[in-house]
């Protein structure tokens, strides 16, 4: 008994800290913008599984992509989720459970999940997976397939369009380009958006960007 008490205390403290942090932030006017919309989806993701939802080919489909080869080696230890920086502060993003859903064949749930877009691609999970599953790459594959179904978060559409227009992901205001030279920097090298657009047409990337999201 005397041993279990301090252990329990250790567990509770970080949670308290977290609650304090979130409640402070929700009082801010920023709360709307910073609202974690992914938690609203939690319900549908945890709803009971129906037999017709299984797609037994899904895991094989993923394994055929670069980075997805080791998916089936996952033994669900949970290292990915426990070491994930995002999972610490998200109510809903759990890489282990995305992997589990994929292995079960819950294709629609995986691909329509908003949590897919919360991976920061820090590769901590990939580096630490004892089974060599490239977790972050598997999540990238899920995203790429979701895009083929027409799901693209607005931010990626913007970044993609910017790249095709300017060669880089942001449109830099003229004033700032002038300021570069005032601070002694050489002019920003010219880009070649035309070449990029040609490549984007060739690969079908342009179509993806223009498709409804």
């Amino acid at each position: 008994m005397s041993e279990s008490k301090p252990r329990q205390k250790e567990k509770v403290e970080p949670e308290r800290e977290f609650t304090k942090a979130t409640s402070t932030s929700s009082e801010e006017p920023l709360s709307d913008m910073t609202k974690d919309k992914t938690s609203e989806r939690r319900g549908s993701e945890t709803a009971s599984i129906k037999a017709h939802e299984f797609d037994p080919h899904f895991k094989h489909e993923i394994s055929n992509f670069h980075g997805g080869e080791k998916l089936k080696q996952c033994f669900q230890c949970g290292t990915c989720t426990s070491d994930c920086p995002i999972a610490r502060f998200s109510d809903s993003y759990r890489p282990r459970s995305l992997i589990r859903m994929a292995l079960l064949g819950l294709k629609d749930r995986v691909l329509s999940s908003d949590t897919l877009w919360l991976c920061a691609a820090c590769f901590t999970c990939t580096d630490r997976c004892p089974q060599d599953v490239e977790v972050a790459s598997v999540i990238r594959i899920f995203r790429n397939i979701a895009v083929k179904r027409g799901v693209i978060p607005q931010i990626f559409k913007e970044l993609g369009s910017n790249i095709l227009e300017n060669g880089i992901a942001y449109k830099i205001p003229e004033l700032r380009l002038k300021k570069r030279e005032q601070t002694g920097l050489p002019p920003l090298p010219k880009r070649n958006p035309k070449a990029l657009e040609k490549l984007a047409k060739e690969t079908g990337f342009l179509k993806k960007l223009k498709g409804s999201g």
């Binding site: 992509f65 670069h66 980075g67 877009w117 691609a121 990238r140 594959i141 995203r143 790429n144 895009v147 693209i152 990626f156 970044l159 993609g160 790249i163 060669g167 880089i168 992901a169 050489p186 090298p189 010219k190 880009r191 070649n192 070449a195 990029l196 490549l199 984007a200 690969t203 990337f205 993806k208």
Partner: peptide, 19 residues
């Protein structure tokens, strides 16, 4: 300096790995 350069590609990896 590197004229003609473009974005490394990382920002669009989530939507199109090949691109």
């Amino acid at each position: 300096e590197m004229p003609e350069y473009n974005c490394c590609g990382l920002p669009i990896d989530p939507i199109d790995h090949e691109m």
